[in-house]
């Protein structure tokens, strides 16, 4: 139930932002992950998300702790290392009314969990899949992850000799219909993308560069706040308009592309960086590869195709959540058993 106080602003459900918070974070002070958590809270509040429908999944690592820090009204499932996608798959099939948010890290998704990441994206599980990407294993004290740049240094002086895996181009390659990269230090952009993500029906892959202040924020790091801020190239200004507000908002003509989601919500995309079309899959791949070669981070909505059917639709499941079906709907009659037995005689 909403716990509105007279002074706090409420959303259309009557909830205040306080209704979307979680437990107190136990991450290091200044961790990029906490900035992401704050924007999840804001976006859920502003998007009028029903907290009880939210399920939060994670694997193992610093990022995987964060589902405890937002939307306490939702159910959380902190599972095992790299296996969050299977958990999200099972729960989302059991109850298609759930709003699924998975939070993972670059170690959790791009190394131990690569297999599950790839297949969840391929199946288009209805979920927001957030990768809090800092290039290191924080919880085990600073080993390189598979997204670390070639030639990157650890504080100890160790050098990464292997090329990075990029979650975004990989996700586009796998057919993901909503791929974005953000920087935890750019809350405005992150907020618009998260709100767009809530309106999307299939798998959303968000690679959020989130500096590790303890193990990967030194001067030589390519994932430090300073380095990422200096190399962040936002592609566009994004304006998300929820379906309920579409009639009240005027989208300026000229230079703005509008993508409409199945629920009627829209995202207005005003290019700032260059002539980048986020609905052009091959063009997006080319632009991202070129920018990576220059050591830049292209951020924003990298690729969007709002009409891809999620797995629940592909499987042609009944509208009622499977978990709610009872014996009357599920158990065949004695006549059915007799018919089957006769066929085996």
């Amino acid at each position: 139930m909403p716990t509105a106080t007279p002074s706090a602003p409420t959303n259309t459900l009557g909830f205040t932002k306080q209704d979307y918070v979680g437990s107190k974070s136990t991450l290091c002070a200044g961790c990029g992950h906490d900035a992401i958590t704050a924007q999840i809270i804001n976006a859920a509040f502003e998007s009028n998300i029903e907290g009880y429908r939210v399920t939060k999944y994670s694997g193992i690592g610093c990022s995987s702790k964060t589902p405890a820090y937002f939307i306490n009204q939702g159910w959380g499932f902190n599972s095992v290392h790299g296996r969050m996608p299977a958990i999200a798959t099972g729960a989302s099939l059991a109850n298609r009314n759930l709003i699924n948010i998975g939070v993972s890290g670059d170690g959790d998704s791009m190394s131990i969990g690569m297999g599950q990441f790839v297949h969840a994206v391929r199946r288009n599980i209805p979920m927001i899949y957030i990768i809090e990407d800092n290039g290191v294993y924080g919880l085990t004290k600073g080993q390189f992850s598979a997204t670390a740049d070639k030639g990157a240094f650890l504080k100890s002086g160790a050098v990464n000799e292997l090329p990075p895996i990029d979650p975004c181009t990989l996700a586009i390659e796998l057919g993901c219909g909503f791929v974005a990269r953000c920087f935890s230090g750019n809350p405005k952009q992150l907020n618009a993308i998260l709100k767009s993500a809530f309106a999307y029906q299939g798998t959303v892959v968000l690679d959020i560069i989130s500096p590790c202040v303890t193990f990967n924020n030194h001067d030589a790091s390519t994932r430090s706040y300073k380095h990422v801020k200096d190399h962040d190239f936002p592609l566009h200004d994004l304006g998300f308009i929820q379906y309920s507000e579409v009639e009240d908002v005027e989208i300026p003509a000229g230079g703005t592309e509008v993508v409409t989601f199945p629920d009627g919500s829209k995202v207005a995309i005003k290019a700032i960086h260059e002539d980048y079309d986020p609905t052009d899959r091959f063009g997006a791949m080319k632009a991202i590869h070129e920018s990576m070669a220059k050591g830049e981070f292209l951020t924003g909505l990298l690729y969007i195709n709002p009409t891809q059917p999620p797995l629940t639709e592909v499987l042609n499941l009944v509208d009622e959540p499977l978990a709610s079906l009872g014996e009357a709907q599920l158990k065949p009659s004695p006549a059915v058993l007799e018919e089957i037995m006769r066929s085996l005689m």
Binding site: P85, A86, I87, L93, A94, L311, T312, L322, Q329
Partner: peptide, 25 residues
């Protein structure tokens, strides 16, 4: 009234089974 998914391996299958059970299926 049933979701059947051929997963990528047995480990993922087990995750689907337990999470679906957790969610009431």
């Amino acid at each position: 009234t049933v979701a059947i998914v051929q997963m990528e391996d047995e480990l993922a299958s087990a995750g689907v089974v337990l999470a679906a059970g957790w969610a009431g299926a």
